[in-house]
Amino acid sequence: MTEHTLRAFDDEIVELRGLISEMGGRAEAAIDNAMTALTRHDLDLAGNVVADDKKIDELEIAVERLAVQILTLRAPMADDMRETVAALKIAGVIERIGDYAKNIAKRVSQISRKSKIEALSVLPAMARLASDMLHDVLNAFAARDPEAAVEVCQRDKAVDDFYNSIFRTLLTFMMENPQTIGEAAHLLFIAKNLERIGDHATNVAEMVYFSATGQYLPDRERGTASDEA
């Protein structure tokens, strides 16, 4: 990064990126903890995830405030402008991701400890894919690496495929075991949340790409996959 004449401007951009990274780190931790809580049926941990989401929301507000301050006081140009706008949008997206993690955590209590639904054992693998995407896109953001961002976008399909297969499995399961429809529906929503996390990770990737190159990422072909439900 080239230095600015005004040291304070530099500091603000660095602070902005720091805030985004902290949000990202918290969102990553929220997903991992929510899934751990789900597999271990750990209600305390789930409660922590829900409580910690407030911190992500606070960080989003801090990012917004700082970004607006930069835009008004510094009137950034070129890459600084992109960086600031991207930060603003990324913060919104990560806040959503945090909400999805919170939503998963809230469902933990609805799924009984003895649940034998097969999807329950597949969801952690799906969560791993989605949270790896988030992890890598945040790395791409930290390194301002457009190629890494493109690479993350390409992985979204795997998460979508995962979602579709879980969707079908759960649907069959619900038809065969009507007494567990409630639980299965919660699992379906969890799968959907994970799928949305993957989508949002690609949104972040698009902003990272834009901020690094000044170009929009070429539109990827949208599968009909995620529209199924």
């Binding site: 990064m1 660095v14 602070e15 990126r17 990274s21 780190g25 918290r26 931790a29 910690d52 930290a142």
Partner: peptide
């Protein structure tokens, strides 16, 4: 390689 000069939270992204 990018971490020098960045915010510490960018370098170590952990709550």
């Amino acid at each position: 390689e990018h971490i020098v000069g960045e915010d510490i939270r960018v370098a170590i992204r952990h709550p």
